[in-house]
Design a protein around this nucleic acid. Structure first.
Lengths: 190, 190
DNA sequence: TACGATATGGAGGGCCACCCCGTTTAGCAA
DNA sequence: TTGCTAAACGGGGTGGCCCTCCATATCGTA
């Protein structure tokens, strides 16, 4: 498989190209936090101080840019999953992690949608794959604490769906947490 | 409150105006089913055989058009809620209805988002209000069958979030049903 | 039939994604 | 340091979209 089609190895890039790419990612991160994932790409380019053609050369599609922006946060979530593997209660570890994923997804508008969009065949299954692999380890370890027939993809879809839907809520994070709690505990009374 | 700001009383409209409005709604319905709720409004106008100005006069914002398109389906859901009020098992009645809402939301791309977007103060809280009122009756009647602290808005947000997230899935309906089942029964094993 | 209120749609402004291609620049080698 | 070449840049063009204005056409009625 190609190492990374969207973003060629940083080391071998020309210095100005690398600098521009980083400025673009920084600008995109700031604007996405303000306005959501459907920012104007030209606006990003303007804020980064580059031409729009430069943006499109570095990131051939919107998804590629989103992935670059969210990459470190996804890595943080994967790291957290690794840490939680040594948590004494495997079931609780999984739920804690799901809440963390939800919180990140709400805080970084568009991350959720980005995580689940494994669609584009050429770009950007990296984030998708990473997070699924990380969650799978937790789910496997949780074993009987989770009802049978539930896959990581289900859980992640649920979490990102909630994040997506509460994204433009005035009180998003709290609402998302509430909905996730409902989904985890179930709607039915016991 | 104004009876309906977005769509003035059909009876008093001029015949050509009513005909055009209906053609626009039909075209929008078809295109939304094909491409999702973010269709090009100009495309809708083209398909309806009217100028784009006409579309914008009848439906001042996208939300107004979506509401007109989805109005009958929302009414059907409300009617179904009414029927289910006489179902022998109040808890099951609520869950059945939620599944129906989910199925509709997946089948009619964008309906889910539309239902929860009570946002715009001038237009379109009608659908939003209707569905909430209908669901509230079912939830109240369900009483103890549902875990305490759960509101209709929570349930509807959950359902529409799931629909939204599975919208462009190749196997959307099945996936949505699976996720809804998980949310209803909970993630935790009992 | 004639008239006024109502509805229409083409044209145009502002914004955007994306691409072409002439110009500039980094990085290397002599 | 200087000169060269491949790599990167960005202004500007294309086409699409949303939305509005206003001259024109149409409806429903007296």
């Amino acid at each position: 498989m190609p190492e990374d089609a969207a973003e060629p190895p940083r080391q071998r890039m020309r210095a100005d190209a690398r600098r521009n790419a980083e400025q673009i990612i920084a600008a995109a991160g700031a604007l996405i936090a303000e306005q959501g994932a459907d920012v104007s790409l030209e606006g990003v380019a303007r804020r980064a101080g580059v031409g729009s053609a430069t943006l499109h050369r570095h990131f051939p599609c919107r998804q590629a840019l989103l992935e670059a922006v969210f990459k470190d946060r996804v890595e943080a979530l994967c790291a957290k999953a690794g840490d939680l593997l040594s948590h004494p209660d495997p079931g609780e570890a999984l739920l804690t992690w799901l809440r963390a994923v939800g919180a990140h997804a709400v805080a970084n508008r568009g991350l959720g949608a980005s995580l689940m969009r494994g669609g584009d065949p050429t770009f950007g299954d990296t984030c998708h794959d990473m997070i699924i692999k990380a969650g799978d380890a937790l789910l496997t370890r949780a074993g009987d604490a989770v009802r049978p027939g539930i896959a990581v993809t289900h859980l992640l879809k649920l979490v990102s769906a909630i994040a997506l839907a509460t994204e433009r809520d005035p009180d998003g994070p709290a609402e998302a947490d509430r909905l996730l709690a409902i989904a985890i505990e179930g709607v039915r009374a016991r």
